[in-house]
Design a protein around this nucleic acid. Structure first.
Lengths: 327, 327
DNA sequence: ATGAAAGCGCTAACAT
DNA sequence: ATGTTAGCGCTTTCAT
């Protein structure tokens, strides 16, 4: 194995100089930097990660904590993971994959054994057991999905409030004056789930501001429930010409039920969804996308900033982008 | 930070004894083992991964190399990754996520910096640039997907030949005597892609053995091509009552085209697919599943065996399982 | 069955 | 601008 001493000898310098060339943590004359670089290439030197971690107390690895079980929308998770790895590599970081199944114990383990420098945690719930642990571990962390109460922790998420509003604005611009909102199951709102509430708030406020008539209803997963909700909306909001759906699980059913009621989509009822892109693509619906790729990149950048000693804002909200798919 | 020396002092033993308690690499009297264990728990000691890697030249990390881009079936990749992480943890291993995008350079990097003990590589192609590199690196590796020519390398895959045969056997048992086969695009066979060829071989041999009439045709992705192929099959194989489809990209279209031709599925034409489970589930088709979870588990187990100095078989083929979804 | 001590390869003071 | 050197925390001979 080629060590830093071999390189130093070959270049006729001290080991520390090689180290400094590599890390840039102190100035090295252009000439020696060249020579050392040359030796490194020639000998094919690659620093030993373990030795580095031991001496420098930096691993250059970040933990990516993902919900790998069913239930979550896998393609979104993948897109996010892909974006995280790519961005991490741009910062010379590697990514350790930890499943959410391991819970707080997993965080304790990888931090305690000094395997990682920081955490990227997806799908954090409001009263997540991992939040206090993360705080206790004291390592830089960035939370994703449903931001928790910030307190030294950093969160990134889509700006769901703006997303709700964006749907209304779009529909109003198309001339709609009566807009329905079909949301998550009632329990989700009861549980005070951040993203669901915020979307609804954004929708309602925008409807108010735009002076359009609106009604919002929750929807359970089963077909019958969806049919009932759609029926109620059509009855209550008789002149409804547009519907915002924030419930990816029943999106397809909603369209199906509308058609079963004799409404053409989008001619009679324009449907705008807040959901992963490929789902909207598949159903050919206008949508506000869940930007997993941007989220991943941003999350890594925030984590790197924290690792660099900076103090990024506790909450970063990504502006929603609406994709029109009329036709 | 709690170190091994702290534990040793607390338990009144030498550091090496603590190490041996942890690794089990030499016998320790039950009594001291107890005492040391107690101290470990009390102090909350967790060994420093970097120090361990440096001194012991074992990282307890394995590299998982995944195709994270579009094109591959994301849910299958996720299920595989999930299974790999779970199984790895059972062996006290962590998983470093490497994207296939990094190519051979990524393998060189994580091996060269001593970040991982071994490799799990998904979606290996027949003339993959990574195969020679893997061999050169000399670290244990297990390849998945389309096994390459084994040569010190270990491969796992679904037994596609058996899968092709299984479909025929199932259909024959249901009484079908004329069976069509609709495969991947022609280029895939021309390229000598292992899994496609083997499936076809299994199908043909079984058809022959069972004495059923059969015709196999490749299918391109576009709707028109699919319609044409389905038309050809129905014409050439006039009495065809069953169809085996090994092309997940067009599976939905195939069913659609059959129905457009006035054939009910499965009453007039029984369709059996070789594809990921959830796709078959969604289309309600009988299928041979791609067992991503079993594959992941088995891959890790093979890698662990190699890390333990064993020499597992160069090729492991998983028996296909057929799921009947008639109704 | 246990202890003592020599590294593993690197970083970061401390020198010059 | 560069060199010297003392650890970082662990494993593993070599002793006893």
């Amino acid at each position: 194995m080629v060590t830093i001493v071999d390189v130093a000898r070959h270049a006729g310098v001290a080991p520390s100089t090689v180290s400094y060339v590599l890390t840039g943590k102190r100035p090295v004359s252009a000439e020696t930097r060249m020579r050392v670089g040359e030796s490194i290439r020639l000998l094919g030197y690659q620093p030993h990660a373990g030795a580095r971690a031991l001496a420098g107390s930096r691993t250059n690895v970040l933990a990516l904590v993902l919900p790998l079980r069913e239930g979550v929308h896998l393609p979104v998770v993948m897109r996010f993971a892909s974006s995280v790895v790519t961005t991490a590599r741009e910062h010379d970081m590697d990514v350790l994959l930890v499943t959410a199944d391991e819970g707080a114990a997993g965080l304790r383990r990888v931090a305690g054994t000094a395997r990682v420098d920081g955490f990227l945690v997806m799908d954090v719930e409001l009263d997540d057991e991992r939040v206090p642990v993360l705080r206790e571990l004291g390592r830089p962390a960035v939370l994703l999905g449903h931001p928790a109460v910030a307190n030294g922790l950093t969160c990134v998420d889509l700006d769901f409030e703006a997303a709700g509003a964006r749907c209304v604005d779009h529909l109003v611009e198309l001339g709609h004056r009566t807009i329905g909102f079909l949301g998550a199951p009632g329990a989700v709102y009861a549980r005070n789930t951040g993203f669901a509430r915020r979307t609804l708030a954004g929708f309602s406020a925008a409807a108010m501001r735009r002076g359009v008539a609106s009604t919002a209803l929750p929807a359970e997963r089963h077909r019958d429930a969806v049919r009932a909700v759609v029926g109620t909306l059509l009855r209550e909001l008789a002149r409804m010409t547009a519907l915002v759906v924030h419930n990816e699980a029943v999106l397809g059913l909603v369209v199906e039920c509308l058609r079963a009621e004799g409404r053409r989509v989008p001619e009679d009822v324009a449907v705008v969804a807040i959901c992963p892109d490929e789902l909207a693509e598949q159903l050919r619906l206008t949508s506000v996308r869940l930007p997993a790729d941007v989220l991943g990149r941003r999350a890594v950048e925030l984590l790197m900033a924290k690792l660099g000693g900076q103090h990024p804002p506790a909450l970063t909200l990504l502006p929603p982008k609406l994709f029109s798919r009329t036709g």
